[in-house]
Amino acid sequence: MEARELTLRYGTKAAIQKVSLAILDRRVTALIGPSGCGKSTFLRSLNRMNDLIPGTNHTGTILLDDTDIHDRSVDVVDLRRRVGMVFQKSNPFPKSIFENVAYGLRVGGMKDKAALAQRVEKSLRGAALWDEVKDRLHDSALGLSGGQQQRLCIARALAVEPQVLLMDEPASALDPIATAKIEELIHELKSTYTIAIVTHNMQQAARVSDRTAFFYMGELVECGPTEQIFTNPREKRTEDYVTGKFG
């Protein structure tokens, strides 16, 4: 997945300026930068969640399998099934655990009960949650702990089997143990999924990602292998940020 010269405006104010960035297959790409730098906006434009905010417009292209996702041939519903998203605040539906995971499948038209159950189990296993919830699949999802809820949201996103998984600060509201579990999970997921993760936490970026992109004031300053960005950045601004001089 790749963005080319993507500029996105809220009204007339540009939130991101001419960003060109590739999210490589089966790699974890971390988007870092100070608050308001446009990294979340960029992430949300990858599955067109920004369409929901009135007054946004864009120029440039975002390619997924060589097709511009804004092309008329691309249906936004199909796009979002291929590019899943996990949000900063866990947001399970007030339904049972099972129904939460099955939601994307049901709206996609899957009716066969056995197939649904199979996919739910697979997704929950994929999100390393199965063992914790297998005995209470039909209890409300709101009874889970914060970390479990976030993993449930990941399972829910995995259930529709997307190619790309976007994560918007998925662990920022969690305690260290739950965060570690999520990070471990990201590690496992990257063998099957292409992942882009926005994070505030530079240690986390360093731990989980293969590539890191540094955003500043709506622009992409630098992008490269994570190790290089953190040890030997090309840009002064990147160095200042990763060494904690501002941000």
Partner: peptide
Amino acid sequence: DHRTASLALGATQSQTLARV
């Protein structure tokens, strides 16, 4: 949040309305 989550999972607006 519930609407956003539903739409991000590939539900249409009317499905989001009816189911969430």
